[in-house]
Amino acid sequence: MSRAALLVLADGRFPAGGHAHSGGAEAAVGAGRVTGAASLEDFCRGRLHTTGLVAAAVAAAAALGVDPVELDAAADARTPSPALRTAARKLGRQLLRAARVAWPSGELDALAGTFPKGAHQPVVLGVTALAAGLGPADAAYCAAYESVSGPASATVRLLGLDPFDATGVLARLAPEVDEVVTRAVGTAREAVGAGVDALPAASAPLLEVFAQAHAGWAVRLFAT
């Protein structure tokens, strides 16, 4: 197992489209709910333990070989906002494009054949981890970390937040990212035998409500 491959996959510059998404931070900033480092940290913590946990578990399950079609449907059921379902599939498709060049593999080709318009991004992430010689915990780490790093870097652009403060938020959340990954991998292992219903379904009502409002904004910096 290559540790360096994890760095490649988790790199914020990995060209898979993440830069155009704020993970709900733009809408939260617009509503005055995120105004600085402290509220950004609260926002990221909530996202980590809800949609971050779900994404991490789906990614880990995909890396454990759970059927991508079932995982994609499970991700759909856990993503009631159509704007977020569309974004997750777009990002999945973009990740798949980058992953197939970085780690050519039959599994990734098959995934592209099954989902020509994209599967939910965490599903692709898990299969990519496999192709890169990584394991379920690595896939979960990428998903969980991404659930907080996206809003943090977006908030630097949105609020002119001091980038050192934003990075400090991520550093303080690191132990909780570890916890979420442990939970995610545990449920993913359950899902191998018990099916995708065993995966967590933690939801964040404000993220869902704001995602739909944000999708209707005429002027915005980020796609979500």
């Binding site: 060209p15 489209g17 993440g18 830069h19 155009a20 777009k90 498709r93 494009r97 980020f222």
Partner: peptide, 20 residues
């Protein structure tokens, strides 16, 4: 294509959305 406040990223560093 939406570019997340970084138009040069979308045409140079991460072209995935444009390719799609």
């Amino acid at each position: 294509v939406e570019t997340g406040a970084c138009p040069h990223t979308a045409i140079r560093d991460d072209i995935s959305a444009n390719l799609e």
